[in-house]
Amino acid sequence: MSASGDTLGRRERKKAETRSRIAESARRLFLERGYGAVGIRDVAADADVAVTTLFSHFASKEALVFEHDEVFRQGFAESVSRRKPDESLISVLRRHVEGMVRHCGSKEARPIWDMIDRSPALRAYEESMLVRHADSLAIAISADDGLACPPIAGRAVARFVITAYSLARTSQHPTTTLDHVFPLIDAAWSARN
């Protein structure tokens, strides 16, 4: 590998380390003091970075909470593109949603989601984030030639799947919620043509 390749790799690692340090500072401060009591300057100082550096990694205070937004967004699209030819799209998406809901309900993630559920600003940010996820999923569905899905049907099914995730994430009985909602999604998918 060339010296410039080593430099680029090192630069990317340092950027990732800085982003991770900022996110960890934000998470810890938000959980210790409460989301509303912590400002951007508090997070930057705790992470030992300039405010401008923080904003080069995160577009807003809300984005600090949803550090893995892009990973979740890509996960939906990848569940479509990586499924086996004989796998049902709806069953693949259900498994993906179940995994996300399990993650959100885990011991490590639960305090963050409790904080999100108590904050109108964070709930609003989550809603806008989920719209982006639905749009990304719809593009993946429409792009898959094997699915033969009209774009409007792909958009509708994507919105249904994202709504199923949202309902299950906030449910006391997530599996039961998915058991009720996914047959409806499957029926809509079967009626798409």
Rank of each mutant, 00 (worst) to 15 (best):
R83M: 06
Y165A: 05
H68E: 09
I90H: 00
L29M: 13
K15C: 03
F160G: 07
L147F: 02
R159Q: 12
T176L: 12
L93W: 04
L29H: 10
D186L: 07
T18V: 12
F55V: 02
T53R: 02
V65G: 00
S2L: 10
R102D: 11
L29K: 09
S166P: 06
I185T: 03
P120E: 01
V181S: 03
T7E: 13
S20T: 10
A50T: 15
L89I: 12
H103V: 13
K84H: 13
E98R: 10
E126Q: 12
E62D: 08
K107C: 08
F160C: 11
D86K: 04
T176E: 15
K15H: 10
D135N: 15
R110Y: 11
V38S: 08
R83A: 02
G5K: 13
G34E: 08
R13H: 06
R27V: 02
L54F: 07
Q172F: 07
H57W: 08
M100Y: 10
G5A: 15
D144Y: 05
A59K: 15
F76Y: 15
F182I: 04
A37H: 11
S20L: 10
E98F: 01
A16I: 00
Q172I: 08
P183F: 00
A191M: 10
T170H: 12
F55Y: 15
A140T: 12
T18F: 00
L122W: 02
D86V: 11
T163G: 13
G146F: 09
A140G: 09
A140N: 09
F58L: 03
S25M: 03
G105L: 02
M1P: 14
R102P: 06
R132L: 08
A164G: 06
T18Y: 00
A47T: 00
E127M: 05
I139W: 12
G5E: 15
Y125C: 03
